Simulated assay, not measured.
Amino acid sequence: MSAEIRIPSIVKIGGGSLAEVAGLLLRLQCRRPLIVTDPFLMSSGLPERLRTQIQDAGLSCEIFHQTQADPTTAIVEEGVRVFVGGGHDSLVSLGGGSPIDTAKAIGLMATNGGKVSDFKTPKTPYIACPIHLAIPTTAGTGSEVTRFTVITDVGTGEKMLVAGDVLLPTAAVVDYELTLTMPPRLTADTGIDSLTHAIEAYVSRKASPFTDALALAAMRTIWRELPISFLEPGNRTARAAMMLAATQAGIAFSNASVALVHGMSRPLGAHFHVPHGLSNAMLLPAVTAFSVEAAVGRYADCARTMGVISADATDEVAVHHLIRSLYQRNADLQVPSPRQFGIDKVQYFDLIPSMTAQAFASGSPQNNPRIPTAEDVEAIYRQAWQ
């Protein structure tokens, strides 16, 4: 079996690497980058410091800071107007998954035209996007190294997955020091998001030896270091390890694809504004319990690699401990169920058929080791409620 691997042409990793952004833009022959970030980071002063670094290198640079959690088609359209109207030739995304996904979509629409919905899966965009340098500030989404973006349609409420090689950032700067101020809730949610990326990449029907190695390395690190990052936010060793693992998991799932957890997570986030990492965490144990029978050996590998069971345990014992450990880790990290999150029960159950249809429309469930029916997905949503 052959596998085609796609990663950014340059990935800088390490503490303090943010200081190398301007030099990297010069290497990429950018002249007028647009920084894409969010209001929270803007209030911290970080985007302005980055703009000063870029301007001191002789480049013209502006900031678009209107991005929001669960980026929408309206925000993307506004970003395109700023990008085109300002004569920008490149993008620098700074933030979590939302600013990076927004920058990908801005680049896509600036060159391809039309609407974001024109390119939702299974359609694939093909016109190259502008140079994009991605700088994550959370250890979670892996979006800095993936060829995906997820944008919510303001008209339908659907979280649309767009996939294509043209969305892959040209370069990424992965500086763990940017995560030292992450609060515990965000640390937990993005950390489990990364764990989900690693597990789903490993059990995906599109997995390869290349992605397997990265996925296993990432899940080993995340399982060990996430509780430390959660309880000790200033622990630089744990933060550095989590940042590297998030990038490894991002490369793994970008090339092997995610599966049922992500397919079900997107509509849950779209309808009830649950942060993406948190909605993954709500679903991961139940989806794993549903899926194990079709890939017992693969899930057992995950359990042994994560250290939740001894290396000589049987596959059946290993997967039992894996499921139990995922539920326990959610409890340790104070992950709420949809009910505990405050979602209205009647609305949740009324929307289960619609969420199920949107999950299948994403294409991700088809990568799952056990391909579900609509009835299976509806049952998992009901189970996750508690």
Rank of each mutant, 00 (worst) to 15 (best):
N330L: 11
Q386F: 13
E177S: 14
P227R: 12
H271V: 09
P233M: 02
A103C: 10
K115G: 01
E48N: 08
M109I: 15
L59N: 01
A207N: 14
D189E: 13
V292S: 02
A294G: 09
L326H: 04
I75R: 08
G297K: 08
P227K: 13
E177A: 14
R304S: 09
V292Y: 00
L244C: 04
A252T: 10
G142D: 09
M243R: 06
V174K: 03
G269I: 01
T37D: 04
T196V: 13
Y299Q: 10
R147D: 06
N330P: 03
P267D: 00
Q347M: 14
G297L: 02
I35E: 00
A188R: 09
P8E: 10
R370A: 14
V174R: 03
I135Q: 06
A198Y: 00
P338D: 01
Q358R: 15
A207D: 02
Q334I: 10
V21L: 15
H273L: 07
I5R: 13
D315V: 02
P336K: 07
C129W: 01
L195W: 02
Y327E: 12
K345F: 08
G97R: 00
C129I: 12
V116D: 04
L186V: 14
E20M: 11
L326D: 04
A270Q: 03
P125F: 01
A238Q: 03
I228D: 00
M243I: 00
S325H: 11
G164Y: 02
K12E: 13
L260N: 12
L46G: 01
A357W: 01
R27N: 12
G96Q: 02
I135A: 08
I106W: 01
